[in-house]
């Protein structure tokens, strides 16, 4: 195809988008709805990601030691834990640090605080371990129940927090799975609607395609203007969907705050931070979906 012809078909695509603006706007609006759903799931997933990180931070274990255990032994265990894949972080809390932390606990009376001095400090030395998941914590717990570690450990918090951690973990898995299933269902439904809208738009123009074929246009010449139009559907839908989501967050985002509780996410800030990624998602998905639907629909009118 000569550059002049390529320029012609590109212009034709632009012109057709404008000439068939009723159909073009309908297709863009339907596509926009799909993209809005996708954007909401993206935002929910981002919030869920932040929540998961916070939940993961709670997957920690406090291992306390008998007073008579030598510090070298504790440091040896720290070293061993640090090399294990399930450990994200391990921190040794000596007697002094334990006392310092105790002094800073709000709500503890000064009289009680004065009872603990460097000379008389009943607080136990401990290792604070952060793991990637509850399963990892369980593995570390199993290790601590083997010799020689079982003899030096006074207690570990896993036994106490086990059921809470497992509940949190099940909740996270449940929310993620539900999110994925709902995303797939909604996106599939929207995709079917988008495909049918574009199919209808092309059906309405089947005579135009027939005329193009009859005057000797080859399939590439016929397809390119429709591809350009589909890209325009995608670009317009992408812009509209971002605008719609921004408006919704701006006007109704505050209503969600009480429900987000500890997560404390500023939705507008999140929108701004994630904007480049969201632009990429809606452009690729919007244009890709429209072009795919367009090519699929046009194919049946191109058979010789």
């Amino acid at each position: 195809m000569r550059p002049v012809t390529l320029l012609r078909v590109t212009k034709l695509g632009w012109a057709n988008y404008w000439r068939n603006r009723g159909l073009s706007i309908s297709a863009s609006l339907i596509l926009m709805l799909t993209l809005v759903i996708v954007l909401f799931f993206f935002i929910v997933n981002t919030i869920l990601g932040a929540t998961s990180a916070k939940i993961r931070d709670k997957f920690d274990m406090n291992i306390r030691f008998e007073d008579q255990v030598a510090e070298e032994q504790i440091l040896e265990l720290q070293k061993l834990l640090a090399t294990r894949p399930e450990t994200r972080e391990v921190h040794y809390v000596g007697k002094d640090e334990a006392r310092e932390r105790f002094q800073n606990i709000p709500g503890v009376s000064d009289r009680t605080k004065q009872l603990i001095t460097p000379e008389s400090n009943p607080l136990r030395r401990s290792l604070e371990v952060k793991a990637g998941s509850p399963t990892d914590l369980e593995k570390i717990d199993q290790l601590l129940h083997t010799a020689p570690w079982s003899e030096i450990v006074y207690s570990n918090s896993y036994a106490v927090n086990k059921s809470t951690i497992q509940k949190l973990s099940r909740f996270e898995r449940g929310v993620t799975t539900a999110g994925i299933i709902l995303s797939i269902i909604f996106i599939t439904i929207s995709m079917i609607v988008v495909m049918n809208t574009i199919r209808l738009a092309i059906f309405a123009r089947r005579e135009e395609i027939e005329i193009m074929r009859l005057v000797g246009a080859n399939n590439i010449f016929i397809r390119i203007p429709f591809i350009i139009e589909a890209i325009l559907y995608g670009v317009v839908a992408a812009a509209l969907s971002l605008g719609a989501v921004w408006l919704i967050i701006k006007n109704f985002g505050g209503l969600l705050k009480p429900y987000l509780g500890e997560i404390n996410v500023d939705l507008l800030e999140l929108f701004k931070n994630q904007l480049p990624i969201m632009i990429g998602i809606v452009l690729i998905l919007g244009c890709g979906l429209a072009v795919f639907a367009s090519l699929l629909s046009i194919q049946r009118y191109l058979k010789h």
Partner: peptide, 24 residues
């Protein structure tokens, strides 16, 4: 072949009862 048909059609003029003009 299918891909030759557009080239063939450029050598044959066709006129229909319903004109088949591009309306816009």
């Amino acid at each position: 072949r299918s891909r030759d048909i557009p080239f063939y059609r450029r050598k044959v003029g066709v006129v229909f009862q319903d004109f088949k003009l591009l309306p816009n």
